[in-house]
Amino acid sequence: MRIAVTHTTSYHSDTPARAVQALRLVPRSLRGQTVLSWQVRVEGAGGGLRYTDAFGNAVELMASHGPTTSVVITAEGVVETEDTAGVVGFPPEAVVPAVCLRNTALTEADDAIRAVAATCRRETALATLHAVLDGLHAAVAYGTGTTGSFTTAAAAFAAKRGVCQDHAHIFIAAARSLGLPARYVTGYLLTEEADAVAHHAWAEAMTPDLGWVGFDAANGQCPTDRYVRLAAGLDAAEAAPVRGVRLGAGSETLQVNVGVQASQSQSQSQG
C-alpha cells in the first residue's frame, strides 16, 4: 500500500522564548516499508544538525535564532508498505536487545502488571507476546481523557483505560517483566473505518527467530500494511517525534495535525 503523510506540529506562545527541539520525524526503510520520499520543513528555527541515534532513528536538532513565539514543523512524504504480520526483523541499529529490558519511570511494571504478565507465559516468546497482546487489549479500554503524556504504565493499567501510548507502555512493562526485550514505537496508522488518521504508537518486542515484532495493544493486532513506522525508544518520551525545551517564561499552546492517506484518498486531521 502507498501511504502519504502530512504531519504538522505547531508551537505558539504569547511571550517570545528560545526553542530547542530534537526531531525524530524521518521514517527509515526497513522490512515492511520503503520510504519513497520524505522531507521535514521547520519555520521559526534553524537546524541542519543530523545524526543517527542508538535506536537507528534519524535525529535532527532544531534551535531558534533568539526568542520566537512560533515554531511550525511539517513532515511530509510517501511510504510504500507491505503486510509482514508486524515482523520488523533485525534492522541495523547500535542498541542491543538486552538494553530494551531496562525500565524507565513510564514503563516500570507494578505487581498488577507482573501478575497478568505471568499468566501469559507460553512455549515460545512469540506465543507469550501474543497472549500479552490479547490480554491487554481485553483488559484496557481505549479512551481519551483519563491519561496524559506522563501517565505511567502502572497508573494506566489501574485505570483500565488509556490511549495508544498507555497500551504500548503497559505492553512494554509486561513483556520486560517476563524477560522479553520490548520498546516503544511511534508512527502513523491508516484506519479502516475513516480511511484516514493520525499519529499512532505501539510496541515492539524481541523474539529469537523473527527479531523485532510489532504489537499494537490498543487495536489488539500486529501492525499491517496500514502502519508507517517512524521512530523507536525505551518509552514515549525517548521516541517522541518532537521533543522540545522552551527557554523562557510564559505559556505555550501546542497543536498537532496529522493527515495520513492512502494514495488519492481523502485526508483528515486530528488535534
Partner: peptide, 29 residues
C-alpha cells in the same frame, strides 16, 4: 558497541545493560 565481553560471558548482561550508570544513548557513537 558490540558488547563482546558480554557475548563472551565474562560479565553479566544485566550488570551492564540494566545499570543506571550505563547510557543506552551512547551506543554506536
Amino acid at each position: 558497541h558490540r558488547q563482546e565481553i558480554v557475548r563472551a560471558g565474562r560479565i553479566p548482561s544485566e550488570l551492564v545493560n540494566g545499570n543506571s550508570a550505563f547510557l543506552p544513548q551512547m551506543m554506536g557513537f
